[in-house]
Design a protein around this nucleic acid. Sequence first.
DNA 1: CGTGTGCCCTGACAGC
DNA 2: TGCTGTCAGGGCACAC
Length: 271
Amino acid sequence: MPELPEVETTVRGLARFLEGERIERVTLNRPDLRRPFPPDLVQAMTGARVIGLGRRAKYGLIHTDRGRSMVFHLGMSGRWRIDPATPDRHDHLVLGTQAHNFALCDPRRFGSVDLAETAALDAWPAFAALGPEPLGDGFSADHLRATLKGRTQAIKACLLDQRIVAGLGNIYVCEALHRAGIDPRRAGGKVTRAQLAGLVPEIREVLLGAISDGGSSLRDYARPDGELGYFSTRFAVYDREGQPCQRQDGGTILRIAQGGRSSWYCPRCQK
DNA sequence: CGTGTGCCCTGACAGC
DNA sequence: TGCTGTCAGGGCACAC
């Protein structure tokens, strides 16, 4: 499930236990996820102290006192398990501090783990072309207007493009377009100025609401076998095909395919 | 350049 | 109770 709010919640949950701690053990249970683990991953992380955690788009960052950061991506099915009571066959990497174990579990293995120089993270290949953070200052209606200008691609696909805005995935794009009353099929360049002005705060609010939901579930992570990365949020359109839209005068939620992925929307609210 | 397609992988679920 | 097909929250390589 991991989109920006889930990664943010995961990072906050990890920070609670990892910040300031020394990594004493690094265990790899297979050589790769989406791509091979860095050849020096174990050496680079063993004995390093975690001086902070962060997030960029859907990537989590574990900063060490060696000037390097471990960059993880949860893909479609990744999550961190804290002090798992029983091992899972998909616990592919385990970090150990004096007090805890942190298992990166990812059945589909669409995730990744990399090492990067902390001071040069902005120039790290996967980050160099990323658009602004949707919760940051660089994200605005003006930015969207400039980057969407002339684009014929559907707004749904544009918002999934991490070069335009970094961190949105299928769920929150569907939810934000519904809240902003924009038809997901509308060409990016044809979304009106007024619609873009409404879209920006809707994106922010739907993300902040989900982070808040995740934060309240963080309480549970204090218990053994806590799992980071998944929490329940109620969605207005996502995975609700055939159900009534809850807005006043709303219609029946439709599901269509766009670029090989599903989009859910209300044909009466979204124009 | 912008745009569209297919694939990586396992698991859950529906229908027979 | 199996089987089979479909779909899943992401990102990237590739073709045009």
